[in-house]
C-alpha cells in the first residue's frame, strides 16, 4: 500500500515539523457589539464593508465609518463605550481584555469626525494601556469621558 505509506509518512513529517494535523485556529473573539446605528453607518473589515446594525459584532482592527447622516456606537467587552457622530472614521487598532492573563489594552484612532469615548474596565485596571490617537495627537486617558473632534484636511 504505497499510498497509505506515503500518507503516514506525510503525517510523520507534519508532526516532525510541528504542523497541526488540521486547521485548529479558533476564530478571534469579538471585541464588542454595535449598540446604535442610524443613517449611513458601516464596519470595514479586511477590505469588506459591512452594514452596521445593533447587535453586530466588532473585532480588533475593524474600522467604523459614518456618512453625513450617520451615527454609530459600540460597547466593548470591558464596558468601554465609543460613539461616533456623522462623517467619522475610527479604527479599533488594539483590543485585549483578559484580566486573568494580564492582557489589557485599548487603542483607537480617529481619522476624522467626532468621537465620544467613555472608559471601561481596561482604563480602570491598566490606564497606561489605553491610547486614543488623532491625526495630530496621542491622548492618554486617566479620565472617564473624552470627546475628540478630528478635522481632516
Amino acid at each position: 500500500m504505497p499510498i497509505m505509506r506515503r500518507a503516514v509518512g506525510l503525517c510523520v513529517l507534519a508532526l516532525l515539523l510541528g504542523a497541526p494535523p488540521a486547521p485548529a485556529q479558533a476564530p478571534p473573539a469579538a471585541a464588542g457589539r454595535v449598540k446604535v446605528a442610524t443613517g449611513s453607518a458601516s464596519i470595514v473589515r479586511a477590505g469588506q464593508t459591512l452594514a452596521a446594525a445593533p447587535g453586530v459584532e466588532v473585532f480588533e482592527a475593524d474600522v467604523l465609518r459614518t456618512g453625513a447622516d450617520g451615527r454609530l456606537s459600540v460597547m466593548l467587552k470591558d464596558e468601554s463605550r465609543l460613539a461616533l457622530g456623522p462623517m467619522s472614521e475610527l479604527a479599533l487598532t488594539r483590543f485585549a481584555y483578559a484580566p486573568g492573563d494580564q492582557q489589557l489594552g485599548l487603542g483607537v484612532r480617529l481619522a476624522r469626525g467626532v468621537l465620544s469615548y467613555v472608559s471601561g474596565l481596561i482604563a480602570k485596571l491598566a490606564p497606561e494601556s489605553v491610547r486614543l490617537q488623532t491625526p495630530t495627537s496621542i491622548i492618554g486617558v486617566r479620565g472617564t469621558h473624552v470627546l475628540v473632534k478630528a478635522e481632516a484636511p
Binding site: M75, A83, G85, P86, L147
Partner: peptide
C-alpha cells in the same frame, strides 16, 4: 459633540 453624545449607549 451632540450627535456623538446622543448615540452613546
Amino acid at each position: 459633540f451632540g450627535e456623538a453624545l446622543g448615540a452613546l449607549p
